[in-house]
Design a protein around this nucleic acid. Sequence first.
DNA 1: GTGAGTAACTTGATAATCAAATAAACCGCG
DNA 2: CGCGGTTTATTTGATTATCAAGTTACTCAC
Lengths: 138, 138
Amino acid sequence: MSDLESLSALIIEFYEKLSSWEHAVVRGSSLTLPQMHTLEILGQQPSLRMKELAAKMGLTTGTLTVTVDRLEKRGLVSRVPHETDRRSVLVALTPKGQAIFEAHHAMHLRLTQELCASLSEEQAQSLRAILRTMNQAF
Amino acid sequence: MSDLESLSALIIEFYEKLSSWEHAVVRGSSLTLPQMHTLEILGQQPSLRMKELAAKMGLTTGTLTVTVDRLEKRGLVSRVPHETDRRSVLVALTPKGQAIFEAHHAMHLRLTQELCASLSEEQAQSLRAILRTMNQAF
DNA sequence: GTGAGTAACTTGATAATCAAATAAACCGCG
DNA sequence: CGCGGTTTATTTGATTATCAAGTTACTCAC
């Protein structure tokens, strides 16, 4: 197996494990994966239009409409009319949604902490630089 | 922002980008994400029982049954009775399914190659060691 | 053999998803 | 101003994904 292939396999394995972890954590939260994903994105922006949110999630706006409907019905997000463009709707977290996001984000931190605990300080620094570079290369 | 938080953010960003990439690539393949995921797992094992496959994907066997039904109907996987345990069914890729898996795997390799092209040789080596460590820490 | 446990499938219900159609609002240009 | 093309969100219709719970067929220990 070439170097490249082994690195590819390691990346895929890492991705799969993160994915399983996320899946398992969200399962225990009474929300579905797309619903939690929506909250996660909204947690990092004050508010987004449906179009922007759909683009960030790689979905059509039609799909997103029903997901936001459900989240709104549960009081986790709110729709606010756009101030200058009346076609648009701004979606934002409610305090209740914000609380769920923060709890979930805290679990991300805890996971990261555990993963990094197995690395040396130099490796952690190195990983930071590597990820910065790779994220830009996308 | 603490070191830990920034590293967490970088990992999440990396994960999100891999996820978007996978989503986009699979979209253009006439298969759905769970279907391709099934092929990806089967591509790395000669064959698996439904139970094992479901466990690897974090699904119930009920869910998997219908996904495998669809893949079988399209001639991408086959069900073979287990030799000694007649309750069990072994699922394996057909040649057609194998071909799709290999094409998809090749795209993974190409992506990895692009990502690593932005790294120095030392960084690539370092990343390999880091991923090995973190994958074990899970 | 009988009974507890296991593997896959089925059923019923909810959620996710897309493509295409619709409705409302924007914007530029005459 | 007012028209036509564009953009934004929603709706509709159809397929797929998913789970929990129930069913059926099989295994294995006793």
